[in-house]
Amino acid sequence: MNLLDMILQMAEGSKVTLEIFFVTLILALPLGMLASLARLSSCRPLSFLMEFYIWLMRGTPLMLQLLFVYFALPMIGIMLPDLAAALLAFTLNYAAYFAEIFRSGIQAVPKGQYEAAKTLGMSYTQTMRRIILPQVIRIVLPPISNETINLVKDTSLIYILAMNDLLRVARTIVQRDFDMMPFLVAAVFYLLMTFVLTWGFKRLEVRYGRYAK
């Protein structure tokens, strides 16, 4: 198999990888933000529920969660298409991690910021939207960047669901041709993706960090 064909096939596999990556990110970030607010809520049952959810998601392997959604849910009558099943597991898992990152970010904003906003007459919503969250974004960018890069690599776990993502395509070619080259090409693909992310987050950090000394 020539290199060009190999790259084209693996580009095809990258589509699945990128689809999982982007959809998970787009769903898990707002979900994680809401979960962190619920986790910090003064409503005890809500806060406890979120703590349980986060414990469950962080306390078990993502691989197990994927298998559960894919194999166990159908046994109780919930059948999801392959892609939807994978997205459900990824989103729930990453939302839990993001929730904890956002929580630490929110808690890192000094109490005085809330007090200043309050004495100026700002409502809870105004305070969160205008004062707290912009500061939280700056604080959480580095850990979010970390998790996001992890997500690129974690997408490779869907090979157990028989979906043709980048790594599975590479493995298929390796097993068929006894040629190790596809693994190298796959590595380059992953590196390219994480390179773009690293660069993007660096720019975001500069943008949101401009007010700090």
Binding site: L120, Q135, R138
Partner: peptide, 24 residues
Amino acid sequence: FQQFNLFPHMTVIENLIEAPVQVQ
């Protein structure tokens, strides 16, 4: 306040007009 509690992500003028614009 003792610790000023200015909004660090806003410029001086933005700090001043934030509440008049948002609240009033």
